[in-house]
């Protein structure tokens, strides 16, 4: 024998190495990237089969499916990164339909030159989030685009879950008299990201709230409360999500500003930039519309869960042909809480 080890492949260099075009070409480099960087971290029986698709057992009930593309800058932020965010976001979209999330699929668009070490951190974070949530990533894909054609990493995740027959949660089910509950303080994810931007440069102890909400939702459903609708107020914030529900259900809403939970740092950062926390993104909060008589029991069930400790009753649903979401201000007046217009831009005036 001549000393050449059969099948030896030099391991990926996670310290100095970078994504290059061969990692997306379908050859040996791609196979190595998938095996060493992805499969080894996300490992589970389905992914390990190495087929083009995963074959999965499904419990009885109706299938719920959702997909979400994740782009975020910076990729690493206080409280999380694009990896765990892409797991939480899709789990939450499935869970707010009342479903038990079962499986995730993930597809990555990598930019040429992206450090392999950073990619490994992102995948580790995904693996940890999926492990904590007990929702495995069962299939995936990677593509590489040329330098300058992407922003490091984009991740699209698709989730499936099941919901039992007769369990109906939908944004068109809010009725006059219902109560509106938010699961905790608002605006943390959006402001954590904003504070990191170079041109704003805040030193603020604001941490993204990114979290998987299916555990909290299970506790809420176990309380037996008549929940009409659940939704996670991500982009556009609480204001936009409530406007969506008001339009779907053909109702109006009245919020109480004094009841809205907002952390002091988030409020201060919003003041600085002329932003309104009602329009800032959340990644680990939900809004619940619940029948009046069950509002207290639901709130109690939420308070007992770690992700619902600051849950608060923030408003009521009423009849309104215009479907306005309004708010009684802490000052004693009234205002409209409208849809988000365009993009939230920092203001100087």
């Amino acid at each position: 024998m001549n000393g050449v080890r059969k099948g030896y492949v030099r391991p990926l260099d996670l310290r100095q190495g970078r994504v290059d075009m061969t990692h997306g070409s379908g050859g040996r480099a791609m196979a190595q990237l998938i095996e060493e960087l992805f499969t080894s971290r996300l490992g589970n029986a389905y992914l390990g089969q190495g087929n083009d698709a995963a074959v999965l057992p499904i419990p009885p009930g109706r299938l719920v499916m959702s997909t979400d593309a994740h782009v975020v800058s910076p990729l690493f932020f206080p409280g999380g990164d694009i990896g765990c965010l892409s797991v939480h976001g899709t789990i939450n979209d499935v869970a707010v339909m009342g479903a038990t999330p079962l499986y995730l699929a993930a597809s990555f668009i990598l930019e040429e030159g992206f450090p392999l070490g950073d990619l490994a951190r992102i995948v580790e974070s995904m693996a940890a989030a999926a492990g904590d949530a007990a929702v495995p990533v069962v299939t995936g894909d990677t593509k590489v685009v040329q330098k300058g054609m992407g922003d490091g990493v984009y991740i699209t995740t698709t989730g499936v879950g099941v919901v039992a027959e007769g369990q109906e949660l939908s944004g068109d089910r809010a009725r006059p008299g219902d109560r509106i509950i938010v699961s905790g303080s608002i605006g943390e994810h959006g402001m954590a990201i904003m504070a990191q931007r170079e041109s704003i440069g805040f030193a603020a102890p604001i941490v993204s709230d990114t979290a998987a909400l299916h555990g909290l939702i299970a506790a809420m459903r176990a309380s037996g409360a008549a929940i009409r609708a659940l939704r996670d107020p991500t982009r556009g914030g609480v204001a936009t999500t409530l406007n969506e529900i008001a339009r779907q259900s053909g109702v109006g809403m009245m919020l109480q500003e004094s009841a809205l939970p907002v952390q002091a740092e988030v409020a201060a950062a919003c003041e600085f930039l002329g932003l309104d926390p009602l329009y800032v993104a959340n990644e680990g909060k939900l809004l619940a519309i619940v029948a009046l008589e069950d509002a207290d029991s639901l709130l109690a069930a939420m308070h007992a869960h770690p992700l619902g400790q600051r849950a608060a009753l923030i408003g009521t649903v009423h009849r309104d042909a215009q479907h306005f979401v309004q708010m009684t201000t802490a000052f004693g007046g009234r205002r409209i809480v409208d849809w988000l217009t365009g993009e939230q831009l920092p203001r100087i005036c």
């Binding site: 440069g201 030193a203 002091a264 003041e271 600085f272």
Partner: peptide, 11 residues
């Protein structure tokens, strides 16, 4: 200078 407002710092 560095200022503080409710825990948010900025130069």
């Amino acid at each position: 200078a560095v200022i503080d407002m409710a825990g948010v710092g900025k130069e």
